[in-house]
Amino acid sequence: MAIELVQLLIYGIVLGSILALGAIGVSLVFGILRFAHFAHGDLMTLGAFFAFSFYVGLALPMPVAFVFACAATALTAVVIDALVYRRLRRTSPVILLISSFGMALILRSLVQLIWGPSNQVYDPGIQFPYLIWGLRIKPDQVTIIVGALVLVTGLHLFLQRTRIGKAMRAMADNIDLARIVGIDTERVVIWTWLIAGAMAAAAGIFLAIDTRLHPIMGWRLLLPVFAAAIVGGIGRPYGAIAGGLVIGIAQEFSTLVLSPSYKTAVAFGLMVVVLIVRPTGLFGGRR
């Protein structure tokens, strides 16, 4: 039984790593631009399929394909912002919400048009798990956890050490004051999309490694991703990491008592409980 629990914990950390990477982007965008970006799940999908093209199509090594896919997704996010969101920024945030919901469908249809509507995988065949003290751990799962750890550390250094990273935190704190001290807010916005886009791509690729590629994979994960961002305190990237792990682990442990098909409902339930009990999230985000 104990082994089984540890096994679930590991699955939870894998899923949590993926959710955290998605939630970081949602949280950053919310902190800087003050709107819930509903196209984030489909940005994840797009990243996963970019990697598919680089890895399977162009036969590049996976790490290279990964970097290229992150870059391509980050650029896509910046372009979407420049074409649409930026022009709507002066209207109310709910208009941006609607727009991003429409953008989600645009991205999904593009993925279907370009890569087709069916399931795909990066590597056909089955991976044999390592067996350690009776625990089954697939090499891919190790890759995902380590990869997420590296990315989160990178994000931490960026936010704490670089000028633009600090400006980003400053802008999330108080956008008017950020303007007053002379921060070029549009430049910070571009950086926000670059990071959110790259992190979304990473989440999408890891999800595809863990499961498979499908045009709707990211949309299906949007709710747990938002749950993670909200549980962690929306607008707080560090909270998003914790929130991701909480949601991921809770989802896996729920399979002990619930049918696995209701994992998403567990994320939703946790989110609702947090919203009722502590609306600013566990780490004091924005209301």
């Binding site: 819930a36 709710l223 989110m271």
Partner: peptide, 8 residues
Amino acid sequence: YLAIATIG
């Protein structure tokens, strides 16, 4: 949050 809840 209402929007997210309705998605849920």
